[in-house]
């Protein structure tokens, strides 16, 4: 029951702190989207409907903090969560390399989706802008991926929601 109060608050702090960390560590030159790793993590740990709700909430927070049109990150995180969730039933791994590959893949897909949204709404799409957005973000995320997974498992970040074991059949 406590999880219903703690998790939303924790996710809010995560979204704010990640933007602040990106500001302090990279001087605002590179976004640090740890929330994307959290979405991938949730897809492998919590049940479907709770995951959908948490990811939509996380997306709403991201929309507010980054200034994107409300719903953009909600839709993207929902998509990432659902596809990751169903894929993880057939393709599952817990190794660092696997997690890094997963984060890399979703980082690239997310950057593409964001730029597609921007192109759709504003008619502004630049491939160079896409590379500039993707690479600075995806590489630190890949490195952080396994670390965040371990930390989340150890601290029980989704404690109470943790219905799927890390060791899946």
């Amino acid at each position: 029951m406590v999880a219903y109060f703690v998790v939303p608050l924790f996710l809010f702090l995560l979204v704010v702190v990640q933007s602040l960390l990106a500001d302090v560590l990279f001087r605002g030159l590179c976004p640090l989207e740890i929330s994307l790793i959290v979405v991938i993590y949730l897809a492998r740990r919590v049940n479907l409907w709770r995951g959908v709700i948490i990811c939509s909430y996380l997306g709403f927070l991201m929309d507010g903090v980054t200034g994107t049109v409300t719903g953009t990150y909600m839709f993207i995180y929902f998509l990432v969560f659902c596809i990751s969730y169903f894929v993880s039933r057939h393709l599952y791994g817990e190794g660092d390399g696997f997690i890094m590959m997963l984060v890399f893949f979703w980082g690239v897909v997310e950057a593409l989706l964001l730029l597609s949204f921007k192109s759709m709404f504003f008619g502004a799409f630049s491939l160079s802008g896409w590379w500039g957005l993707m690479f600075p973000q995806v590489i630190p995320l890949c490195v952080l991926g396994p670390f965040v997974f371990r930390l989340a498992d150890r601290w029980g970040i989704v404690h109470g929601f943790n219905e799927r074991s890390p060791e899946r059949p």
């Binding site: 049109v69 839709f75 929902f78």
Partner: peptide
């Protein structure tokens, strides 16, 4: 629904919603 919600918000952005303002202020 989420996709339509995004498109709707893009075309109706005259007012920032109360919840979004809460997120911005809180952040």
């Amino acid at each position: 629904f989420l996709f339509s919600f995004t498109v709707y918000n893009f075309y109706h952005d005259e007012h920032v919603s109360f919840f979004r303002q809460i997120v911005i202020e809180g952040a």
